[in-house]
């Protein structure tokens, strides 16, 4: 009995030693040197691998930061400035501050505003619906409502409203731009969050002329240009029958919104106006 135990003990110990030696040599042979700072940076990053920074994932961003030896042009949307400051502190680089952003949905073609004219009955993919037709409401640029953006979101920061049939961005959006890329019609845009989360933007991307645009949707931008004239800061431009508010120049004065004849300009998180206006868009969006 003892013999058996002894033999097995010796065999197993010998086996273990041989394996250890083998492993050591193999590890030596295939050793890859890596800057230890990369791991430090990875530890500071959120680890969501969302791709919002423009790199393939958190590790890729860390590698790029360490390789370039600076933080210029690099940002981590989910982590925000706090994360970048931490990284800067650890590596001893100068931190670059970026304005926090959020995704906004530039379409207000709800069931009410753009009534359903066609029934869509195919696979639930905006990309596919886009190849088939203009959309249930008839607008060739409007939201198709199949939720490609919602599927693309890793942070559960966007959901489909049952009342309007439009996606709604929640406050926990980290501006990783996954939804921006997912939308086949370029409806979603990243904009600065603004003071006190106040934002104002043209909630339409329709480039048709006024008449056909208005025919499909009550709140379409008809390219009349009134807002352009009303703006004192030259923040609004008109291109292809569509107005666009530059968030960098906009001072959030809300003058354009009162001018817009169709109510295409949408304001978020502003206090109610003193005198009631019909064109004020609902601010239910969180």
């Amino acid at each position: 009995m003892n013999d058996i135990m002894l033999y097995s003990l010796i065999t197993l110990v010998a086996l273990g030693c041989i394996a250890a030696i083998l492993l050591y040599f193999i590890a030596q042979k295939f050793k890859v040197y890596e800057d230890p700072r990369i791991d430090d940076v990875v530890d500071l990053l959120p680890g969501a691998n969302c791709g919002g920074c423009g790199f393939a994932g958190c590790r890729a961003l860390a590698e790029a930061i360490v390789k370039d030896e600076n933080l210029e042009g690099k940002s981590c949307p989910p982590g925000g400035n706090a994360t970048m400051e931490q990284i800067a502190a650890v590596l001893g680089f100068a931190a670059t501050i970026t304005e926090p952003q959020i995704a906004v949905v530039r379409c207000n073609g709800s069931f009410e505003n753009a009534p359903k004219k066609i029934d869509y009955d195919a696979v639930g993919s905006c990309y596919f619906a886009h190849t088939l037709f203009a959309g249930e409401g008839g607008c060739p640029n409007g939201c198709l409502g199949c939720g490609d953006c919602i599927k693309s979101c890793q942070f559960d920061a966007i959901f489909m409203s049952k009342e309007t049939g439009l996606p709604v961005v929640k406050d926990n959006c980290v501006a990783c731009s996954a939804c921006v890329k997912a939308c086949p019609r370029g409806i979603i845009e990243l904009r600065n969050r603004g003071k006190k989360e106040r934002r104002i933007f043209v909630s339409c991307v329709n480039t048709e002329k006024g008449a056909p645009a208005k025919k499909n949707c009550a709140v379409a931008c008809i390219g009349c240009g009134k807002c352009v004239k009303s703006c004192s800061f030259e923040a609004i431009t008109l291109n292809k029958n569509l107005a666009y508010i530059d968030y960098a120049k906009c001072k959030l004065c809300r003058k354009c919104a009162t001018e817009c004849p169709t109510g295409a300009i949408r304001e978020l998180n502003f206090p109610p106006r003193k005198e009631p206006k019909e064109t004020v868009a609902e601010t239910a969006e969180a």
């Binding site: 195919a122 696979v123 993919s125 990309y127 596919f128 190849t131």
Partner: peptide, 12 residues
Amino acid sequence: RPLLDTIRVGKN
């Protein structure tokens, strides 16, 4: 199953 719809998306 909408096989062709899905395949078309991929094919595109």
